[in-house]
Structure formats: C-alpha cells, structure tokens
Amino acid sequence: MEIFLNEKSVIVKKGYSAFKVRDSVKADADVVILNGFMIKEDTLLKEKDKLILIKRGEIPNKDELENLLVSRHTPGLHEKVKNAVVGIAGLGGLGSNAAVSLARLGIGKLILVDYDVVEPSNLNRQQYFIKHIGMLKTQALREIIYEINPYVEVKTIDIYLDKQNIMEYFKEAQIIIEAFDNPKCKAELTNTILTQCKDKFLVAASGMAGYFSNNTIKTRKITNRFYLVGDNISEAKPGCGLMAPRVSIAANHQANMALRLILGEEDI
C-alpha cells in the first residue's frame, strides 16, 4: 500500500506499523508524527497515511525542510491554508503578531502593508528585535517570517494606506486583517472595504489596551463579512498603555478568525 513518508510517496507492505517503518529507514528518529500528530505508541499504518520521521536537533537539508515544517499541520486542512492569501493593514502589535501566527500555520501568501520603521517603543508588544530598530517594519517582518517558514510568500508594500489605494493593494487577498493603531484609520479602512470590496472578509480590532481581564476580548460578527475583535472600550491613552499580552490575545483572535474563514467556518 501507498503511504507518504516525509511527504514522499512510498510503498510498504500491508500490516506495517509506524515504528517498523522507522526502524527500517531512520532508526535514530526520535520524533514520529502520524497524520499531523506526534505518536508515542506504535500504530498500524493505513493506506495514504502521512508519516514523518525526525531526529531531534538534526538540521534537515533544504529539500526535506518544507516537508518537515508541514508535519504538524493537519492533512486535508493544510492544502486550503497553503492556498490562502491574507492582507494585513498595519504591522504594529496586532499586525506583527497576527502575521507571525499565520506564518507558523504555513499560510500561502501574506500581503504586509505599513509605511513606518521599527522604533524602540514598539518592542514592548510587537514581534521585532533590537536589531530591527530603524528598519522598515515590512522588511523586518519579512526577515522574521523567513526565519520561521521560508515557504510563506510575502509581499510587502511600504505606503500609507488610505481609501484611494486600499482596493488596489489588497486585490489578491480573500481576507483582510485591520491592524492599525489610530481609530480614524481603523474606521476609514473598515468603511472602504465594506462598501467597496463586496467579496472580501474583514477582521478588524478595537479595544485591547491595559491589563483588564482576558475574557473581555471577544470576536463579534457584525455582518456576513465583517468581524470585530476586542473589548470595544479599552482605548490606548495616558495611564492605559498597550501591553504585549492583551494585544497579542486580540491579534491571535484575528489570526484564528482568518484561519476559520479559510477553512470555511464563518461562525465566531
């Protein structure tokens, strides 16, 4: 029968188990992943099973790398994720965190838009490092994503997004994540997308400053194509700053909603 060993088609005898295959092809592999799940107990293989064998700490060669990176992705779902294009407007606390989560998922393509450079005050909540200070956020994030998963296609656009150009830059994206800081920019982007791009989903965010309860951050479905994440009240202001935990909770609500939409789940 046919199985996929490190994503390559091989024929094994019926009745072979995962560990038997390991012992014959890569006896020193200490991580055995069957259909996206790491197994500790030997399991009988079935037709079309996906088996991945990894030796911990071994740096894989380039050909193997992509196959190993997808090994924890759920087969069947990953193909949809790999074909998805998501646009991210603003690469601050929301945008950089959502982008990194989507990159870890092995998303097909990200369109990253921001005009700004990384500065020291960003590091309290954004995904950048000291070495990125002064660099365009688009370039810094491209570098970070490349270090996580070089097979994610990244398109970067260094402009100030406004209602005249939003449509043009996000043409390819099925889903747009609104990740701006300024409330007027958030509203303008949302109004523009909802009135002009009738075929796209928008996942926006409002209210994630401070250290209020985790559980006040929610995803709401406002219309068929418009989702809003946040507690809707916690504004960033003097005495109530933005901090990494709540901003990344909100960003990952956005990333998970994008993933759900990619997989056809439109409910919150």
Partner: peptide, 10 residues
C-alpha cells in the same frame, strides 16, 4: 441602526 465605534490601539 448599529453604530460600531473604534477606539485607538493596535
């Protein structure tokens, strides 16, 4: 009518 307001922060 649904008025969806945005507050700053991101």
């Amino acid at each position: 009518i649904e008025i969806v307001g945005f507050v700053g922060g991101g």
